[in-house]
Design a protein around this nucleic acid. Sequence first.
DNA 1: AGGATAAATATAATTAAAAGTAAAAAACCT
DNA 2: AGGTTTTTTACTTTTAATTATATTTATCCT
Lengths: 234, 234
Amino acid sequence: MPESISDYYAQNDKMYVATDCIIFGFDEGKLKLLIFKRRVEPLKDSWSLIGSFVKLNEDVDQAAKRVLKEITGLENVFMEELKSYGKAERDPGYRSISIGQYALIRPDDYDKELVKKHGAHWYEIDKVPDLVLDHDQMVKDALERLKRKARYKPIGFELLPEKFTIPQLQQLYEAIYQKELDARNFRKKVLSLNVLIKLEEKDKSTSRRGAFLYKFDHKNYKKLLESGYNFEIA
Amino acid sequence: MPESISDYYAQNDKMYVATDCIIFGFDEGKLKLLIFKRRVEPLKDSWSLIGSFVKLNEDVDQAAKRVLKEITGLENVFMEELKSYGKAERDPGYRSISIGQYALIRPDDYDKELVKKHGAHWYEIDKVPDLVLDHDQMVKDALERLKRKARYKPIGFELLPEKFTIPQLQQLYEAIYQKELDARNFRKKVLSLNVLIKLEEKDKSTSRRGAFLYKFDHKNYKKLLESGYNFEIA
DNA sequence: AGGATAAATATAATTAAAAGTAAAAAACCT
DNA sequence: AGGTTTTTTACTTTTAATTATATTTATCCT
């Protein structure tokens, strides 16, 4: 880079840096996406992901967390960079790049009032309407990433309440992969990973017998990861 | 994002967008990285990745390709986004974010004169000196990505000359994973993927008998990918 | 010619993953 | 009490992946 910065940015034109959040949730056995209706111009009334420009004194991931908190009230959520979107003409208004970040949130956690107030709405993943700019692409990319990642890291747990049953977990994986799994083998496999803690309680909302609740064992998971263990779910 | 852009960028301060290339090569049985010595202030004489600011009318990935061509003379190289680096204080000089992109190039392809002229140098991956800013982290991240990716996509081939032998391919995987592989089983596995075309010619540079040369079968690879085939190498 | 060396094949043995069969257990319902 | 439903465990069978044993082949070297 022998050129100096001013060669590129001498004009009054600016490069804007934004971040957009692809927010997944799991509810009623369905994988869902949180989007919202723009209430200001430009593109008023279009559906869009939730995003923001990155402030000058702010880390990019901080910016994404800030937005997520504004909209859902949630902190300490699983969030990971997806990729950047940097085509010169991606936004007709001004030159910008956006860092896409996907988040997984638990359906019972978020602040419903706050979400409503911002004009946000949960859509089942295969019923999401067209979004502004390149946001459709972002969702597509994020879904692919979720599918791949859920295969070798237990991120699926981020989408469930803290206590969950094995049939619930199976439902989630079935929703992500859009195919049915064998209950016996799924159970066997997931338990063999040794990252679930069985609780005394049962959840009886979906069956007569009721299913035992489990918690995710973060400690043991970390230990296993460090020892080079390779997860494989579904 | 109810706020307007000018809230964030009203000051004369600017946000700069850069891209840095993590360039891998494979030569003499070793995985190597191309870095260069800065010849201008600031940080003159420090080792650094090759990068550039993104021009206002340029896609981010275009910018990376431009740099790569300037330094190596190469076009149409395997290059993929790694991740963004967006900490507010990552560069003490000015607020910038950088999109890391990693590239895999064939050792015989690049323009040696051009590389020399730019003060660039190939280092074995475990002997790379300290780099400026967060470039060390970028290299670490890129290496991890390469390891993971090489496991399920045949990107390793990008690092070999167009014609290569199976023992060479094995060497490459051994270099990436830093462990020895069984020749018989490696051969069996890699051939079972059906993405290699056996040629008539032999390479006799490393053994008396000589080993048959192969080409990567891009067409068949694509076909298999589309049909949902899942690669697994090493 | 005989020995050395790396490459290549064939095939057997072992281990592990996936799929399926059967049935018991814990609740609830009428 | 007996029927119903879903969860759960115990085991078997099938299939596939991994590892290992043994040989053969092509070539160069002395």
